[in-house]
């Protein structure tokens, strides 16, 4: 066996391996971008009251745990939940989604977000009036999964946490 001088040995396998590692890191960064896009588009659809589209953002076996509604499992139950939101009148509310912290691990990911809703309507003597200033702060804690159709929510927990926390006992209280 004849030894190949070091200077003549191709470094190609090593370089290709490095290229693969960089590709994986880039894929994770892209995944964070795609997940942020998914969640922002979902929240914009909520704001635009496109409730009929919302279940499409979830995995078939997705789970939601929204405020005081309890857990709903599967796309049909999720669809029923969001369809019900259409019956709740809410006009002139602004939505602000911010501060995503997303961790990707292969084909699954987790994410925490802050959410604010700015309300602008109230009722006085049975009539709608403009009332400025009222806001709510919420938190999304979600899991995401990569599917054949792209990233989808596999689990979504949402709570309004300030000024009044959804998990406080009825009638108020401190947490």
């Amino acid at each position: 066996m004849v030894a190949v001088p070091a200077e003549n040995r191709s470094r190609r396998p090593e370089l290709v391996a490095e290229l693969g590692r960089l590709g994986a890191r880039l894929a994770d960064l892209e995944a964070v971008g795609e997940i942020e896009r998914l969640h922002r588009t979902f929240t914009r659809a909520v704001a635009d009251r496109e409730f009929g589209t919302l279940s499409g953002y979830f995995c078939d076996d997705g789970v939601i745990d929204m405020r005081r509604h309890g857990e709903k499992l599967g796309r049909n139950a999720i669809k029923a939940h969001f369809d019900g939101m259409g019956a709740v009148p809410l006009e002139g509310a602004g939505y602000l989604l911010s501060s995503p912290v997303v961790h990707v691990s292969g084909d699954v990911a987790s994410g925490v977000w802050s959410w604010h809703r700015f309300l602008a309507s109230g009722t006085v003597a049975g009539r709608p009036v403009r009332v400025w200033g009222v806001w709510e702060e919420g938190r999304y804690r979600c899991s995401y999964r990569r599917t054949a159709d792209g990233w989808r929510f596999s689990r979504m927990q949402f709570r309004v946490i300030r000024p009044d926390h959804d998990d406080d006992p009825p009638g108020g209280g401190e947490r």
Binding site: E18, L22, L26, L29
Partner: peptide, 23 residues
């Protein structure tokens, strides 16, 4: 060549690292 590929990888590594750091 391997050297050209290596140079591209050095550049790519720095760009990926910068994006990761910002994140």
């Amino acid at each position: 060549t391997d050297d050209e590929l290596d140079a591209q990888l050095v550049s790519l590594r720095a760009r990926v690292r910068a994006l990761e750091d910002v994140e």
